[in-house]
């Protein structure tokens, strides 16, 4: 949940980019990082797993407006995509304020998307979160690939409840900021509700 720093008058919110391996979570963050005003962003940090080979998460604070005199700072995280690094994903989900699920549109990765989505729901439940109550958006990435599944199928399988969703090509930035803006707005709405 959001963390308030009274000394610096900042509200810190955590947005986690979740999804299957190599689906484009890191690419999303890299694009946001590149396009963000240098004065509004912190350092991007990559942590490696114990094997020191796998990119584990990225950390990107972004200053974004104010709520009742408090600045809102968004921290963007990615989780390790490989299905078997579940412990790290659980850890990163702690204190989450908003989630972006980055699905890989390639038809061959449909089962990996499903597995990751199920895994996310399980991990949230374990920490007593209810996905229906968390600001949550869906991004269908890699829409430019010829083996991309049809949008209707992706929606049906991955987004049956119709949360806000976006088509994206993260490598060129298509849909990246639209996704971020929407999840940020949803987080802000939740913050205002809580006040």
């Amino acid at each position: 949940m959001s963390f308030i720093n009274y000394a610096s008058r900042e509200i810190n919110c955590k947005i986690v980019y979740y999804g299957p391996g190599l689906g484009g979570k890191t690419t999303n963050l890299q694009y946001i990082y590149e396009k963000t005003n240098p004065t509004a962003k912190g350092k991007m940090i990559s942590l490696a797993t114990e094997t020191e080979r796998t990119l584990f998460f990225d950390f990107l604070p972004l200053a974004l407006g104010e709520i009742r005199g408090f600045k809102v700072r968004f921290h963007l995280y990615t989780v390790p995509g490989q299905v078997f690094y579940d412990a790290s994903r659980k850890l990163i989900l702690k204190g989450v304020d908003g989630i972006v699920f980055v699905a890989d549109s390639q038809i061959e990765r449909m089962d990996a998307n499903m597995e990751s989505l199920d895994n996310m729901k399980i991990n949230l439940q374990e920490q007593s979160y209810d996905l229906a109550k968390i600001p949550y958006v869906m991004q269908y990435n890699k829409r430019d690939l010829p083996n991309a599944a049809m949008l209707e199928e992706l929606k049906k399988v991955l987004n049956p409840n119709g949360v806000p969703d976006f088509e994206a090509v993260a490598t060129v930035g298509t849909g990246v900021f639209e996704t971020l803006k929407t999840v940020s707005k949803l987080v802000l709405v939740e913050l205002r509700k809580g006040k």
Binding site: P20, G21, L22, T54, G81, Q82, V83, F84, E108, D111, A112, M114, E115
Partner: peptide, 14 residues
């Protein structure tokens, strides 16, 4: 089976 396939594909992709 599905989980096994995903694990293998993740190992291979990375």
């Amino acid at each position: 089976k599905r989980l096994a396939r995903i694990i293998v594909s993740d190992i291979m992709l990375y």
